[in-house]
Structures are given as structure tokens and as C-alpha cells.
Simulated assay, not measured.
Amino acid sequence: MEVGSGPLRIQVVSDGRVGMENQALGLAEAIARLTPADITVKRFRWRRAFDWLPVRLKALWMLDPAGDAPFPDVSGPWPDLWIATGRATLPLSLVARQRSGGRTFVVQTQDPRMDPAAFDRVVAPAHDGLTGPNVVAITGSPHRITPDTLDAAAPDFAGRLSPLPRPRVAVLIGGTSRAFDLTEDHALALADRIEAAVREAGGSLMLTFSRRTPAVARSAMSLRLSDLPGWIWDGTEPNPLFAFLEAADHILVTEDSANMAAEAASTGKPVHVLPMIARRAPGKFAQLHADLQARGAARPFDGTLETWSYAPLAETDRAARAVLAGMKRI
């Protein structure tokens, strides 16, 4: 493909879910740190009646008109680079590659569960086991965490976080998925272990939950940990996650999320992995955590706040360089 000499035109395509969008946006931002670029985000939705259809059966007329138009009009230029994440975006990525006539380099993050040759590049977690000449396998998933993004987030929350006693412990709780569960009893057991460790160290707590956290588990943990100094984010104020990571001396993360683990390991701070209830063999999650342990980033939480150091994970930057190499921009 041929790309002009001006800033790279990058289009991030998302169905609006923050976790999905941040993967594509994180990769786009990493590319923009390496070469001049303009980033545009397009958010779309499929009409509810057609959302369940397989990728190959979806048609553009099934898109919800309330969303952004993902493709340029007849007179508009195609982006140089298209980055999308998640199964909902697959039909659009396939159309973009076909309609652009080679003008747009199409990148899909995550395992598309179809032939990766349908895209120009696929950036997939190594623990998914996807291989191919155009596959870039990375530890975890692309994300937006960098020292600069954390530093930029800190001032907005400094008034609440700076007075907290050290060590400050950021706790990132996931939830129910096909592989794991988080019952009320297990949530309380985790809370007891977290409370004991924070009190023993004389530190403070910075706790946030995922959208997948069951309400009963969220309530149980919030109540049990409410007497500790710190902040339990209830979701009603601006999200302090980046500020939590910047302020933390230790990060505790449940084992159910590749995204949270990779983000935590990008900070260079000790990452303690909290166990969940396994619904099936952990499989790829066990591979991910074994990789993080081999890199010195993560260890199973043993009830203490042991300190160690390691080279921060920089897999999103590595994927960005691979994309630019595929575009012959570096």
C-alpha cells in the first residue's frame, strides 16, 4: 500500500464498549508516539435484531443509524490505518479491506477466530495460540497505560490520593465469565485477605470493580473493606483507574482478566494475582500468568505485600512497531 508523507490517518473502530475500544485506541496511541498521526474514533452499533448473526451474514444495512458511519463517503479519503477490536467489528474490517482497494491497512486486535489472512495484521494475545505470517502475538492485550498517561491522570485525583498512607494498594476486581466466578463468599474471603495485608503494612486501599463484578460481590467487598483508609470507587464519579495505578505501591488484580493483568504489569510495580473460582480449566489464563511470572512482573498473592522490581511490560509499543513495519513506515 502507499501512504502519503503527511501524518498517518488512523481510524479506531469500536462498538462503544470501553474495554474493547481501549485496546484499539491504545494501539493507535502507541503508533502515534512513533510517527506523526491523527486519530479518529468511530463508534457504531448493530441493530439489536441482527446483533446475534454470524460475521459473514451481517450486512451494512443492519447497522444502527444512531451510530457513527464507519466508512468515508464517496468523496472522502480512506484512512491509512484502520484498527478495530472485538467480534462486533469484524464485518466492518472485512468490508474496509475490500472497499479501500489497498489504501487502508486493516488491523484487528484479539483473535478473530477466523483466518488471520483476512486482515493485514492481527495483534493477538500470545496465550490464544494464534499463529500466521501476519500475526503479532503479545503478552496480554494492547492498552493505553504509559508513564505519561498515568502522570497526566494524577493531578485530577491528587487531593484525594496524595494524603493516603503508604504503601498504597490498588485492587482491581473482575467478575463472572465463562472461565471464572466470583461468589459472595469468595468475595468476602478475598476481602479478608486484602484487609489483613493492608492493615499489617499500615497502608491504604484504592479499590475498583469491573462491569462484570456481580452486585452482591461488589457490595460484600465494599462493606467489608470500608473501614480501611483509602477510596472504594463506586462508579458514580470520573474513573480514577489511571490515578490509582500511578499512586499505587502494589497492585492486586484478579486472575480473570488479561487486560487488567497486562495493564498492571506495564507499570513496573509489584502485581499480586488474586485467585477466582474456576468454572473450567484455566487454560490460556494460566499461560498468561505464567508468562507474567516468568517476566518477573506478577506473583500469586500470598497475603503479604512483598516488594520486587522488573522491566515494565511494553507489548503495546512492540505491536505498534510491528504494524508500522508492515506498512513500511519504519
Rank of each mutant, 00 (worst) to 15 (best):
A265E: 05
A196G: 08
V323F: 00
G140K: 09
V271K: 07
D80H: 00
G203M: 05
Q23F: 04
P300T: 14
P275G: 02
L60R: 14
A154T: 12
A32Q: 00
I277Q: 11
A196V: 09
L305K: 06
L161W: 03
A247E: 15
L313H: 07
I31W: 00
H127N: 02
T213C: 11
G67Y: 06
V106A: 05
W231K: 04
E200V: 10
P165R: 13
D256Y: 04
R99G: 11
V253A: 13
A137P: 04
M62K: 14
D111V: 04
P65N: 12
N22H: 07
A297K: 13
D185H: 14
V74P: 10
I330M: 02
T85C: 10
E306D: 12
P300W: 13
A154R: 12
G16Y: 04
A243C: 04
K284G: 08
R318H: 05
A37F: 00
D15W: 06
L172G: 09
V123S: 02
A59I: 09
V13D: 01
L27V: 06
A179Q: 15
A118R: 08
M62F: 08
F71N: 01
D51K: 10
R295N: 12
N22Q: 10
F301W: 02
P147K: 10
A170V: 05
A32W: 00
T254N: 14
P300N: 13
G129R: 02
A191P: 13
R121L: 12
V107K: 04
G202V: 03
G102K: 06
A290C: 09
G175N: 10
L205Y: 12
A319H: 03
S309F: 04
A264R: 03
N22V: 12
V106P: 01
L252A: 11
G203Q: 12
E306T: 13
R17Y: 06
R329W: 00
F244Q: 07
F209P: 12
L305Y: 06
G6A: 01
G102C: 04
P65Y: 07
Y310S: 13
L63C: 07
A49Y: 05
W82K: 03
G159T: 03
D234N: 09
P282K: 02
S219R: 15
L164F: 08
A126H: 09
V323K: 01
S177W: 04
G268N: 06
V107P: 07
G19I: 04
R144F: 08
A30W: 00
V13W: 01
R17G: 09
T267C: 09
V136I: 08
E195A: 15
L274T: 06
